[in-house]
Nucleic acid binder design. Sequence first.
DNA 1: TATATTTATTAGGCTAGACTAATTTTTAAA
DNA 2: TTTAAAAATTAGTCTAGCCTAATAAATATA
Lengths: 225, 225
Amino acid sequence: MAGLNIMQTLSEENYLKIIYHLDKQGLKKITPTAIAEALNNNPASVVDMIKKLVEKKLLQYEKTKGVKLTEKGKDIAVLIVRKHRLWEVFLLEKLGYGWEEVHDIAEQLEHIQHAELADRLDKFLGLPKYDPHGDPIPTASGETAITYKTLLADMDEGKNCKVVAVKDTSPAFLQYLKKLDIGIGTKIQLIEKIPFDNSMVILIGKTTRATVSKIFAENLVVNEL
Amino acid sequence: MAGLNIMQTLSEENYLKIIYHLDKQGLKKITPTAIAEALNNNPASVVDMIKKLVEKKLLQYEKTKGVKLTEKGKDIAVLIVRKHRLWEVFLLEKLGYGWEEVHDIAEQLEHIQHAELADRLDKFLGLPKYDPHGDPIPTASGETAITYKTLLADMDEGKNCKVVAVKDTSPAFLQYLKKLDIGIGTKIQLIEKIPFDNSMVILIGKTTRATVSKIFAENLVVNEL
DNA sequence: TATATTTATTAGGCTAGACTAATTTTTAAA
DNA sequence: TTTAAAAATTAGTCTAGCCTAATAAATATA
């Protein structure tokens, strides 16, 4: 994690972040056009910025392979993502913000610069592993847990999925799962999302209908069917 | 407090803030040169920005009277100061940052935009009245009136008080405080005032006795218990 | 393979916000 | 009141980061 101390501009940081995300999303070739679309700006602008970031050794670019973050560039991107997700936890848990509100504020907070900030915040929040949207929070050393899809964040009404894991492993949660007859492999259909409190109505297996809370849904790791 | 919802640029916000501070410091005529000095930039740049802010109805400017914040401009400035000081409290109390470190980070955090942010943060912190440097935190409605009490000026022999802030934030002073084991919240009893040189004998916590100078005592902001 | 289409790149503009240098206005001193 | 000094203003540059339009290159299709 060297060189994170050299301040990047807001714009540079946003480019690094978006490239990181595109990569994480599995895009094999990250092109200027793809970046422009993700940033909602112009490919010509992107080409300029790519040059600048290559110059700064934060990116590599070969027209055949597209854009790739260097180690240094990746470290910066991961730190931004880490800060973003930590701030989201803070806004939700400490300031009582809602689910939908935290992202936009975290977009601003993720750019706050100070060497120890992320680690101090992390500690203050009790070293959370996931942000309120179910995305894993990179650790201080930059490791990112596998990105899970959760019932809450990744499923839409009418979709079918299969339970592949749980995030929370507390007895209380596991017991509740047992009661609902949900286990690894159980098929679930999302019937209705209730925006008010992010709860949802689901169909468990073929016949059992249940209404489950936001907290429940974000702890259920699923694969879409 | 109307119109705070129209986003200002970072630079605009910094101008409004500095003008607010110059006014608070008692500068009767706030000139382009004074602003340029405070911002460490060029008077020519300041003239440009003044025009822009007058245009936006955030400032009034008459060459004879200098610059003045409009109601709207002042509301924005106060909110920035409020956010700055609240974030300083957060950084010190929740993240464990030192006195000297919080200012620079708060300079960044004060620009985070969200309607409810200041109020939510305020509530989360327990509605603090002072920031760690002893400056009063403007209330939600923009009042900044509170004059602080110092150990020197406002305490009498036998009285108990609690340290709420410091005025001087020089390393020398902060180091001395550390040595005496005085921090935010430390309880102090005034045992004896020595009229000769305005020094005083105090009891720090339960057992530690110390004699402190006038200069020391006037830099310690306290609340009477 | 030749052609059409999509993508990348270059060239040239634009705006915000800074700067320098030159000029005008204001203030202070003789 | 005249002159000297300081402050304000104007004019013209510069950079970052965006834009559009034009061109070049790559990819896909006939």
